[in-house]
Design a binder for these strands. Structure first.
Length: 637
RNA sequence: GCCCACGUAGCUCAGUCGGCAGAGCGUCGCCUUGGUAAGGCGGAGGUCACCGGUUCGAUCCCGGUCGUGGGCUCCA
């Protein structure tokens, strides 16, 4: 009697097949459509090829391009096809790695000459050929010895390095599509013919294994889709996203500018400053409510301070230096040492703790020239910093308080965010047990909040581990904004103390934290998030008064004055132009309200309201309009 | 810092296979006084990023510097 396997499908449906049935057979049995769209499968939670044979009762999930893992497999297979095309055209290249990434894939190659954009076109053509040839992807499992032998024959030093680093007992596999064979854990789509629409998008350098001490390889980025139309849609979406780029909108909306005279040092224009000041007004209010005090410390401080804080040994390459009266000074890259001097300016009692001292501190950091990016990555920025000096027993509660504040603030702006926990880096100070204690305190807080979080091993600050809040820009890149860093080191180094209830000196713990992160970066994110169409409470210009003709300038001026009296940010378009022209411009400037005033309005003391989103919404009295807009401003809409 | 690409008017971009540079928008002036996304005419505006080389002659070719963009490493 033939043995059978029971297969548990999605929705708890169970089917029975002869032992040795492939996942593809199961897909075919379910529906021809699924068979056509199936890319890869999950058997008992493990990703496998569709050719995988089921030899025991299993839970089977068949994945298509709709599934995250299906997409990643699809892109990863495309990267193999790209490597195949590159090998055909440039047989001398050595292969690095070629994973799927969000929205696409890349492959790293080592080649003496650099690839040109023309090469990319050729590679893309060759890929299309390989896809048309429809080679199946075949899995070949080998022993470590066989793998090493094979890679030596193939002359692939980077792959060889990868195999040598694989842990004892790891399954080693190759995948073969046509004449191309590559070391790869898999899985893959059934054959190259599935990869209907491919596009190579960019060319970049990338260090082997992400280490700048290693050789720089050439990375080719691309993306792929199962349908041409999906690729086109994606490319269009990227074009649209570029229109929201804060650097472009910053110029168009006259918010800020960058100049060759100060690379990485942004210049804020009047309208950008309104965003800035509105944000910090909001920030101050929320911090006052939560028991924060505000301080301000100098930008330039004696280098002795930085030696003491550890910045000299751990952060010097990011700092700027100067000299005053023959003595060495540093321009602050962080606010903590200055803040600590304020803490130490008097004897602190346990009754004062937790002591929450906030500072909008302008810091300067020497960032590598290649990383500068609009407002997102600059060399001088204002952190909405705060240092909380707490007793050990208060740590958790204070961390939770910061998490809540960050969540509250991000929700006001409608941001999606994710959090990451970063642990001890290589270049850091202090004993391991303190790091362990600090890291678990942060971890506990995250667990308590029920956050899904990513762990970045070795990514903490040199004085302590941290929780980071990441927000997305218009094309999906994420930027770290808020951060919470737990620090047992600085209190030690600066011999911080408070007098406990027992009359003895005790060591406080410091929590460093930001919510916006940097005002610059946060504003950059805001611009992209709203595509420049800020909610009324943030809009640099909230109302544009547009007289129908020069005859109604006086009435327009009167409307403007009354709105100004109500502290509404209003401009009057006095130019000798037609209404349509002035409206168009106000619309392009993304001003939320336009008030059209002419004969009718002047006669009855009315305004005609046009909104950025809805167009003409009819007339009302100025008083009515004021109530309406003030409500929006108060509600932060 | 490293890899690749780019740098022409305030902005967006054409252009010259080496022979003293162009459009649209914006800006300025004049005409028009117009009711919900561009009224008409005219003018001004460029050391073609900077430095050097090749050449009779360079914005164009070559080298370097600076800056920008996309990545890598690094970080708010």
């Amino acid at each position: 009697m033939q043995e059978q396997v029971r297969v548990l499908l999605k929705g708890d449906e169970e089917r029975v097949y002869p032992k040795g049935v492939t996942v593809m057979d199961v897909a075919r049995d379910i529906s021809p459509k699924l068979a056509k769209e199936a890319l890869v499968a999950k058997v008992d939670g493990e990703l496998v090829d569709l050719s995988y044979k089921l030899d025991k009762d299993s839970k089977v999930e068949i994945l298509t391009f709709e599934d995250e893992e299906g997409r990643r497999t699809f892109r990863h297979s495309t990267s193999h096809v790209m490597a195949q095309a590159v090998k055909r055209l440039f047989p001398d290249v050595k292969l690095g790695i070629g994973p799927a990434i969000e929205d696409g894939f890349y492959y790293d190659f080592d080649r003496d000459e650099s690839f040109t954009p023309e090469d990319l076109e050729k590679i893309e053509k060759e890929m299309e050929k390989i896809i048309a040839e429809d080679h199946p992807f075949e899995r070949i499992e080998v022993s470590r010895e066989e793998a090493i032998k094979k890679l030596e024959e193939m002359g692939e030093p980077y792959k060889l390095e990868l195999v040598n680093d694989l842990p004892e007992g790891a399954k080693i596999s190759f995948y073969k599509n046509g004449e191309f064979v590559d070391l790869c854990a898999g899985p893959h789509v059934p054959s190259t013919g599935r990869l209907k629409a491919v596009k190579l998008t960019s060319l970049a350098g990338a260090y082997w294994r992400g280490d700048s001490r290693n050789k720089m390889l050439q990375r080719i980025y691309g993306t792929s889709f199962p349908k041409k139309s999906m690729l086109e849609e994606y490319l269009k979406k990227m074009e649209e996203a570029k229109k929201r780029d804060h650097r472009k909108l910053g110029r168009e909306l006259d918010l800020f500018s960058m100049h060759e005279e100060g690379p990485g040092f942004p210049f804020f224009h009047p309208k950008g400053m309104i965003l800035w000041n509105t944000l910090i007004d909001f920030w101050r209010k929320e911090h006052r409510k939560r028991g924060y005090q505000e301080i301000k410390t100098p930008i330039i401080l004696n280098e002795e301070l930085w030696k003491r804080s550890g910045h000299w040994d751990h952060y010097k390459s990011n700092m700027y230096f100067t000299e005053i009266d023959g003595e060495g000074y540093a321009i602050k890259p962080m606010n903590c040492p200055g803040g600590i001097l304020v803490y130490k300016s008097q004897v602190r009692s346990y009754r004062e703790l937790p002591l929450r001292m906030a500072e909008l501190g302008l810091v300067h950091r020497h960032e590598l020239s290649g990383v500068l990016h609009g407002l997102m990555r600059v060399r001088s920025f204002t952190q909405d910093d705060a240092h909380l000096y707490v007793m050990p027993s208060q740590i958790e509660e204070e961390i939770l308080g910061v998490i809540d504040l960050a969540d509250y603030v991000y929700k006001i702006f409608g941001f999606d965010y994710h959090v990451e926990l970063s642990t001890r880096p290589e270049n850091s100070m202090g004993p391991d047990e303190l790091w362990e204690k600090a890291t678990s305190a942060l971890r506990n807080a995250l667990e308590k909040k029920g956050f899904d979080y990513k762990v970045n091993e070795g990514d903490g600050a040199f004085y302590g581990p941290k929780i980071d809040f990441h927000l997305k820009d218009s094309i999906g890149r994420t930027w770290q904004c808020g951060t919470i860093q737990l620090d047992f080191m600085m209190p030690e180094r600066f011999d911080l103390a408070y007098i406990g209830a027992d009359g003895e000196k005790h060591r406080p713990v410091m929590i460093h934290r930001t919510i916006f992160g940097s005002l610059e970066r946060f504003i950059g994110i805001l611009i992209e998030h709203y595509a420049g169409a800020f909610p009324v409470w943030l809009s640099p210009v909230q109302v544009k008064v547009i007289p129908v003709s020069q005859k109604f300038l006086d009435y327009g001026l009167k409307v403007k004055r009354e709105l100004e009296d109500q502290e509404i940010r209003v401009e009057l378009d006095e130019r000798n132009e037609k209404v349509g022209y002035k409206i168009r411009e106000a619309q392009l400037q993304k001003i939320p309200y336009m008030l059209i005033v002419g004969e009718k309005e002047e006669a009855e003391g009315l305004v005609s309201v046009r909104t950025r989103e809805e167009g003409d919404v009819g007339t009302r009295t100025l008083q009515e309009f004021v109530l309406e807009i003030k409500k929006k401003i108060d509600d932060k809409k």
